[in-house]
């Protein structure tokens, strides 16, 4: 295992994050605050409580998940796509590193960034609403697992993408709608029965539900199922990464 290489890639990616630290830090703070102003204050004042939790607090887990998923994907996909785009990938390909080490470096850094931003949102939320986390360990577990899974997913997108448009395609057309329709801002019990059933086909529902359970102890779906969903998604991404590794798909000519 070439740990030095993993470290080099990881630090390189983190350096990019720190170069734009203000932007990385301020933009989630601003967008979170906006969500609280719009959803928490304007709309939330008309919704009293959801499942015994004030609406402002209720949306916190969904808000964190929304950002963590999109940030995990965008950081990892850009991280590996950019060297492909500008041609610097030759170095990683000609160095004594295997694909696992490359993935660890890029996806690890993307997961770290997503985790950091998730925690920033959690901290910002505390300024707007009273938050108590009933299962802190489970909360941390869900959060970390989500960061890792979506960083891996982003890595796959970055390898797959042949241009910047494709890089944006899956996050914009698939992930964002799934997250918004996955109960980020509402409980699925608020939906008509037919939509409740349809919603269960949205994998993001399980992630947000489990994460919300860790905060408030209430969930749309059993927490075991949530854990299985996120672990399954993580395993699926790892399997795809493994196949890419075996074949050198879209990396080596």
């Amino acid at each position: 295992m070439n740990l030095q290489a993993v470290r080099s890639i990881y630090y390189f990616e983190m350096a990019r994050f720190f170069r734009t630290f203000l932007q990385s830090f301020i933009s989630p703070v601003i967008s979170t605050s906006l969500y609280f102003v719009v959803f928490g204050t304007a709309i939330g004042s008309r919704i009293d409580q959801v499942e015994g939790v004030s609406y402002g607090a209720f949306i916190v887990p969904g808000l964190i998940m929304l950002t963590v998923m999109t940030q995990g994907i965008s950081n990892a996909s850009f991280g590996i796509y950019f060297p492909k785009f500008i041609g610097t990938i030759y170095e990683q390909l000609s160095a004594p590193v295997n694909f696992l080490e490359i993935v660890l470096g890029y996806a690890g850094a993307a997961a770290t960034k997503a985790l950091f931003i998730g925690l920033v949102i959690l901290g910002t939320s505390a300024f707007f609403v009273d938050l108590s986390i009933q299962h802190p360990l489970a909360m941390a577990g869900f959060l970390i697992l989500t960061c890792i899974s979506f960083a891996l997913f982003g890595f796959i997108i970055g390898i797959w993408a042949k241009n910047f448009e494709q890089l944006q395609l899956i996050p914009l057309l698939i992930v964002t709608p799934l997250v918004f329709l996955g109960g980020s801002f509402y409980s699925i019990s608020m939906l008509p029965p037919i939509w409740q059933t349809i919603t269960l086909f949205n994998p993001v529902v399980y992630l947000i539900s489990g994460f919300r359970w860790a905060f408030f102890g209430t969930a749309d779906v059993p927490v075991g199922l949530s854990l299985l969903a996120i672990a399954g998604f993580c395993a699926l991404c790892m399997a795809v990464v493994w196949v890419i590794f075996r074949t050198g798909w879209r990396l080596r000519s």
Partner: peptide, 13 residues
């Protein structure tokens, strides 16, 4: 940093 990165990729301290 660029040169340091390359050295690291090759597993060198």
């Amino acid at each position: 940093d660029a040169v340091r990165f390359s050295r690291g990729l090759f597993g060198c301290k």
